[in-house]
Design a protein around this nucleic acid. Structure first.
Lengths: 341, 341
DNA sequence: AATTTTTCTGAAACCGCTTACATTTCAGGT
DNA sequence: ACCTGAAATGTAAGCGGTTTCAGAAAAATT
């Protein structure tokens, strides 16, 4: 197990200079097979591991990527973090995780912290990192002036910022259109914030509704903002809205959490799903299949997004030119909360 | 934003030696208020941040803790990782995340990787890090010979290893006893691996069953091993078991995931919960409240465990003597899948 | 065999900070 | 005004690597 030897000890035992040991360590080509073997033997024998700090100081990198996400216990974000961490490690990079919450200030601080720890890049996981006001996104540009910044599920056009997004607009448009086609007219839209993807999703919903000429009926939409986990609150809110005379036969949510609140509402109030209430969620998370009936949900191919993100990042770190923005399309996974015609 | 200045630049501009700047940076007491202010002004003006690598090299620490967990997208583990990361950061430490999967080999490698990155400690999140065979746990002892190792939800008696666990045995005993008291006799036990906590839980279940004299009826227990998310598989397995003539009126699971499989099974087969089938889960995760009826589940006070873990760790890192093992008791959260008496 | 290349290797500078130790400064005591 | 000890500051030696540059060894050429 990791000994406390230095490169000097190895060089001495191997009878070569530290420069040579260093070369062997870094796979430099300019070292004869014979000495390479000699040195490697000593290294293996004594289980020598170079000191990461010294290495970092010399190379100005420790092969570490900062991952920022608002809440790594959120099902969807957790999955993304998981994929990214795995992919990074398989590429020889480690992940410095930073859960920032949804507050801008904390995000800014975390960003500086990661940079001060000398990460090679920062990956922002989730659409909540992009704000409506342009100035609120400056913290991203600031960071990008030091290291490349990768955005997952969000987009920002700025130097050294790379965006990997799913086409939320179209996905939501399709989902809404499908529900309209199945005969629903009073369709509520749920979402939890005006994040980048939230806006895009809303636009997709709206477009489909307007196209069907039922958007004017009165914008049937419920604003919701709160804990991602508060399915209860969602259900309660629906119950109240219903008691206040709001009538609806469909719910489309920007997140499975919220959709699940609608499922709960229906079950608690004896409504039949999907006959009385049709529901579509978003993210196709574990939650979508844990309830009964199971949730029709939009899958945005998270794993693919993550893979592409890492591929892009590795390219950048190798000095290659990479696309600044990539868009993937999502897919509606049909399950029990919707009835296709 | 982070400039590229060195301590030399600052010392020059402030008209002091680098030693003095360093002292100011590290809050050394031996520096007069006047010069301290002078130096701080320069530092702030130029937004100087000391180079983390150089600092690490000098201090032999970069204030980073390694967090290992099998699967950070698992609801329960994700929550734990989240708490720990937050607490660490509020104590001035960053988190190097390493998702290892459930394979011992990968765990060993990840451990070495973290150590080579010179973390100050390693936190193992989840009971799956402890194996039955003593030799399989050696990798933990090896790591502990370099840095303190913290175990969450698992225990191992070894030098420099600290364990924070919940009393799974008693929790499970109580849950089983409660179900027996409510009149159930054919109680299945579900669990997914022979991990540290799995064994303890099983023992608690068994003790309660034996005490009631119904354990001998034939050990009613279902082995299950697979993806944490495979609720379907669980439901299917139950359906098959039932068709094969297995009769049961209660299910106790070592994880909410598995319990949810039982809920799904019941709903799909028209069984009434809790009348026909009583169910108790474990971990009191988000899943417990997302279904209908909601899941009675054992809460093992994860946040408290994490807080205690960090407190202990900070003590250790400050050179204090700390308890090697702490046990917290859990609590049954009563919900709709059980009927009290 | 002598000369030119090419390939290896080593000496030493450097990365940017901490800190032990030496030195200076300064207040307090006589 | 002089001495003493404490407080403040500076000097320089690490920390453990990487890398440039020059020189030595080996290979290729004549």
């Amino acid at each position: 197990m990791t000994t406390n030897m230095t490169i000097y000890d190895i060089s001495e035992k191997a009878g070569v200079s530290i420069a040579t040991v260093s070369r062997v360590l870094n796979g430099s080509s300019n070292v004869s097979e014979k000495t390479k073997k000699k040195v490697m033997d000593i290294i293996n024998r004594y289980e020598y591991t170079p000191n990461a700090f010294a290495r970092g100081l010399g190379l100005n990198t420790m092969k570490t990527i900062g991952i920022m996400c608002a809440d790594s216990s959120d099902l969807y974000l957790a999955k993304a973090v998981y994929y990214i961490e795995q992919l990074l490690r398989s590429n020889g990079y480690d992940s410095l995780l930073c859960c920032t919450g949804y507050d801008l200030n904390t995000k800014e601080q975390s960003m500086e912290l990661l940079i001060s720890k000398k990460v090679d890049s920062i990956v922002l996981v989730g659409s909540n990192f992009i704000y409506e006001k342009e100035e609120d996104n400056r913290y991203i540009c600031d960071a990008a002036s030091v290291v490349p910044v990768m955005l997952l599920n969000a987009a920002l056009e700025a130097p050294n910022v790379y965006s990997i997004v799913s086409d939320d607009y179209t996905s939501m448009y399709k989902a809404t259109a499908q529900m309209i086609a199945s005969g629903r007219k009073e369709i509520l839209y749920f979402y939890n914030s005006f994040s980048y993807s939230g806006k895009r999703k809303l636009a997709g919903y709206r477009a489909a509704m307007e196209e069907a000429g039922i958007f004017q009926n009165g914008l049937r939409m419920q604003f919701y903002k709160g804990s991602h986990e508060d399915i209860h609150a969602m259900a309660k809110q629906l119950t109240e809205a219903s008691q206040c005379g709001l009538s609806f036969d469909g719910v489309i949510a920007a997140d499975d959490n919220l959709a699940l609140g609608a499922v709960k509402y229906a079950l608690q109030n004896g409504l039949k799903i999907p006959e009385d209430l049709s529901i579509i969620g978003y993210n196709n998370s574990l939650l979508a299949t844990c309830c009964e009936p199971e949730l029709t949900s939009i899958d945005n191919r998270l794993e693919t997004l993550c893979q592409h993100l890492i591929t892009t990042l590795m390219g950048i770190l190798n000095g290659e030119e990479m696309p600044k923005k990539t868009v993937f399309s999502g897919e509606i996974i049909q399950r029990g909360t919707t009835l296709l015609q």
